[in-house]
Structures are given as structure tokens and as C-alpha cells.
Design a protein around this nucleic acid. Structure first.
Lengths: 151, 151
DNA sequence: TATTGTTATACTCTATAACTATA
DNA sequence: TATAGTTATAGAGTATAACAATA
């Protein structure tokens, strides 16, 4: 499929796709880091440490990204009553709406790129493959987490 | 495929994959932006404006990223003789070696994530789909460029 | 005048190290 | 002591606006 290409690195498509996602998100004034945080929080409220592990970033990074979202009214902080060190982070209604518009922007951009493939089955396969990669990422994270705990 | 998932945004996998690529690249001290630049330059020397268009970033971003690579000896600048405003940017041997090690790191990480899928045909499909997306990105960029020129 | 590339400047994301509060 | 989260600080990528050199 890529036999006539001079160079076909496996990460090339990922790196460029990520840039396109970044550009799409910029149209609704959301960064990639904010987008990842919004999606994760949409799956349920969580504490900072847990988010850092799931998003594969440092604790201070979580603080910085969350702070921006809190100031926009997209995320709410609330101290846990059992363990007063923990702070639960949750999406607000504003945050849900922001995520929805971000998702629209990303979906539109990725779909229009995929549509360039012309062949409808190929387009469907390409879009579906992202779901497959998502599944692989979930499993890889779970395995990583298990390894950490066994050490 | 994702029917039991509470939320399955299309850009979610791209955003997380990009973070994994970023982490893989960090092991060889290369940033995502540097990686994109190295791959593009591996396909042939180019001028700054052309790179900015192909990588979908601003002119000053190209300058900044190239500057880091020049200081590492990975890229060489040379003024064009015909049009003395233009500066040709080319990969050095050091740059080729750096790209090769970056590519190894990314390939290893993505392969180990894909391997979590278990089923060999599924793994092969997932990896191949990245090539398909690469093709779609190429076509989308060409169309975008054509639109700009017709305006 | 238009184009090529850089400089000036500012903002965000990222990390590590050090700190506070709580357990 | 150990853990959760933040603050302090620094480095990189990104952008826009303004500039220099060349066409």
C-alpha cells in the first residue's frame, strides 16, 4: 500500500492526526490536554492522582489543566469528606457543553479527512480502527497499572 | 463494538495515541514537533514556508523547532543562491540517525499497545489503518493547498 | 509592494523538586 | 512516615504582530 512512498514511519500518521485534532479543538478554544481531561471526567468524577495515571501525565500537569477548566466553569473541585487530602474533580454542565462542541469540531475534521479516501468501506474501516486503538490503549493502561502494583 | 462504553468520542483514541507517541519519543529526547519535522525533512530538503504549510504550523514555530534541531546538529540551514530570501533546510547524518532511533522508540511503543488486542489479524489491521490515515492526511493536505491557491 | 524568514512577546503544557495538609 | 495535591520554576511548542532582507 505504501510501496511507492520513500519513507513510511508508523508514528507519522499519529503525529499528524494529533495535529489536526489540535487544530479542530482550537476552533472551540480547547487544547488537546483540556480535551483529554474533559473526556476522562465525562466518564465520571475522579481524584487528581487517578487522573494523572489515566492520562499519563504528572500531578502538576493535572493541576494546571484542571485550573484552566475550573476558571472557565467547566470543572468543579470538592474536597472528599472521608479522606480530606483528596479532591474530587467533576464536570459541570458548562463542561459537558464544552466537551460536546469540542467533540463536534473533532468529529467533523476527522470525518472530512477520512472522506478523502473515497471508498466508503475504507472510510468506515478507518474510523472504526480508531475505536480499536482505543480498546488497545485501555488494555495497555490496565496492564501497566497492574505491573506497577505488583512491584 | 463500543456499545457497552458510556462515552466513545472519535478523537479520544487519537489524543491518547498521540500522548503515547510523545512518551516514546521522550525516551530518545525528541519532541512531537521535532519528530514531525525530522520525518518531513527525511522526505527531502525544504524551505521554511513550505514546511509550515505541510506541518500545519506557523512560520515562527518552524523557526523555533528547526533552531533546536540545528543546535543538535540534526539539521543544516543553507541560503538559496537563486532567491536569497529562501533558506533550504536539510537533514544531516546525525539527523537521520536521530530519526531512526525515534522511529524505533515509537514503533516499539505502538506495537506493544496494538499487541494488547490479542488477535493477530486485528493487530495487523490496526497497524495498517495508520497507513490508511496517513494517505487520507496526504490527500486532505493537497486539497487544502489547492483551495488556497484558487482563492 | 509582496514574500521569506526571524525576532519579540505571551500563553499553555510539560516536568522535577520542594512544600502543605492530612493520614 | 507516607500520600494527595499544590506551588515554584524551567523548558518547549504554539501563536500573532512587527521587523529585516530580498524580490
Amino acid at each position: 500500500m505504501a510501496s511507492e512512498e520513500p519513507y513510511e514511519p508508523i508514528g507519522w500518521a499519529v503525529a499528524r492526526l494529533a495535529r489536526q485534532v489540535e487544530l479542530a479543538l482550537a476552533t472551540v478554544d480547547v487544547s488537546s490536554a483540556q480535551y483529554r481531561m474533559l473526556v476522562q471526567l465525562a466518564r465520571g468524577a475522579e481524584a487528581s492522582t487517578s487522573l494523572a495515571e489515566k492520562l499519563a501525565v504528572s500531578g502538576p500537569s493535572v493541576t494546571a489543566v484542571v485550573e484552566g477548566l475550573v476558571q472557565r466553569g467547566a470543572v468543579e473541585r470538592s474536597r472528599s469528606v472521608e479522606d480530606r487530602r483528596q479532591i474530587s474533580l467533576a464536570l459541570t454542565e458548562t463542561g459537558c457543553a464544552l466537551l460536546a462542541s469540542a467533540e463536534d469540531a473533532v468529529r467533523g475534521r476527522l470525518q472530512s479527512i477520512a472522506d478523502e479516501l473515497g471508498s466508503e468501506p475504507l472510510v468506515t474501516m478507518a474510523v472504526a480502527s480508531l475505536g480499536v486503538w482505543g480498546e488497545a490503549l485501555d488494555r495497555a493502561r490496565i496492564r501497566r497499572q497492574a505491573l506497577l502494583r505488583s512491584n
